[in-house]
Design a protein around this nucleic acid. Sequence first.
DNA 1: CGCGAACTTGATATTTGTCAACTAAGGTGG
DNA 2: CCACCTTAGTTGACAAATATCAAGTTCGCG
Lengths: 244, 244
Amino acid sequence: MSNPLVMKLEHGACLTDADRAFLHDLSSRPRRVAAHRDIIPEGERPEDVHLVMEGVACRYKILPNGRRQIMAFLVPGDFCDLHVALLGLMDHSIGTSWGCTVVDIPRATIDNLTAHHPRITRALWWATLVDEATLREWLVNMGQRDADRQMAHLFCESLVRLQTVGRASEDSFEFPISQADLADVLGITSVHANRALQDLRAKGLVEWRSKRVQVPNVPRLRAFAEFDPKYLHLKGRESGDKQA
Amino acid sequence: MSNPLVMKLEHGACLTDADRAFLHDLSSRPRRVAAHRDIIPEGERPEDVHLVMEGVACRYKILPNGRRQIMAFLVPGDFCDLHVALLGLMDHSIGTSWGCTVVDIPRATIDNLTAHHPRITRALWWATLVDEATLREWLVNMGQRDADRQMAHLFCESLVRLQTVGRASEDSFEFPISQADLADVLGITSVHANRALQDLRAKGLVEWRSKRVQVPNVPRLRAFAEFDPKYLHLKGRESGDKQA
DNA sequence: CGCGAACTTGATATTTGTCAACTAAGGTGG
DNA sequence: CCACCTTAGTTGACAAATATCAAGTTCGCG
């Protein structure tokens, strides 16, 4: 399976073969992290930058009352903490939702990269800005949509994001997370998440069995969720113009 | 009143006098934009980068059903669209909540800046990453807190942000927006926003009359909102360690 | 003074949360 | 291979938060 980081960055910049080789080197020798473990805890000042190569991790915060909000899913090709070079402390935690493989990249490698590889640097900033745009979309989702549409929107987004890194087919993808995690993404109860999911199943919009999501009719799900992938700023076909 | 852009960036980087002079030049000759007007509409590919110098603007999206979600307030010293250089199209709109003055900075000036002013470039990326951290905090706020605490949290954040650009006193600031705008920030109805606000008033946590918010007891409001300003990544005293 | 926008209030509907039980599924040791 | 055990998923009854609708009321401004 080809390198998810390379695949992702190709959507944000024009890379040369040398760039690709450099990125490939960067992401070799990953280590395994078990499910439900922290990769980086809040308050830390990480020495390495962390890159997810397999599995699903998430950014989250825990409140004093014990509630948890997940603010992003990290899938293959996503960096956990590119921002700490400029911000210093982690203001949130990153943990695995499922077993992951992760690459630890020394800060010095990143510094070298920003000094000598302008196209890659540009691509990494592009990825950071897309993360920010995704955050904005999640905010819209949470503020203005009911639980079922919100969930449908997340499925649409996940399908596209995983397709861009070669981890999803036309209409299905591995989604090895619990309904409780899903609830913490949407800002609702796991009971309510379960009911919203059953709604979607009853409407024939999604199937989700044994850790795989299957979308019988992608345009229909997109219409239901009012999903428009332009906030992902992908160049090329996956951007979903096919929905017409 | 000193330059809000300079004041803000001082919190994220060490600037020289030359840097300050450059930034000061950058932000001269602002133009006026009336209240409730778009500065940049969704779908545009702006030629200039826009910087708010006075007033309040907001990032927002409008959904097919007409509902609106505000994703950020832009106050003096904030850039509207630094990201378009890398992302291309605007995936959301920016409009004024109140009369603003705005500076239009040609793309070429920004390119020159990134090529020849590394400290400023670094400071601008710092500001972008703080925007992203703020977005994450809003997501937590919306997902996990009831309307009254959510509103209290926004007041706490606004107080700190405006203090860092010299637009707020120890315990009060101009807040010239409507309750309807506020509701669109929090993802609730304006009726509900009004009731939450009256709760806060009844508890003695905030006063808000004639476009000015006054906080009688800042530590008490912070405690109620569970506000911890570390996500704003300010260096120095405003970071709010005084709450203990 | 009068007009329109913003704010306030009450009654009621809908969405979402809470609690508590129950069922299904996966993993482990005998 | 099965018995058990833990976790995840499901259901129902009820409570709380929030939305909706419709009618006032106040405020700023010309």
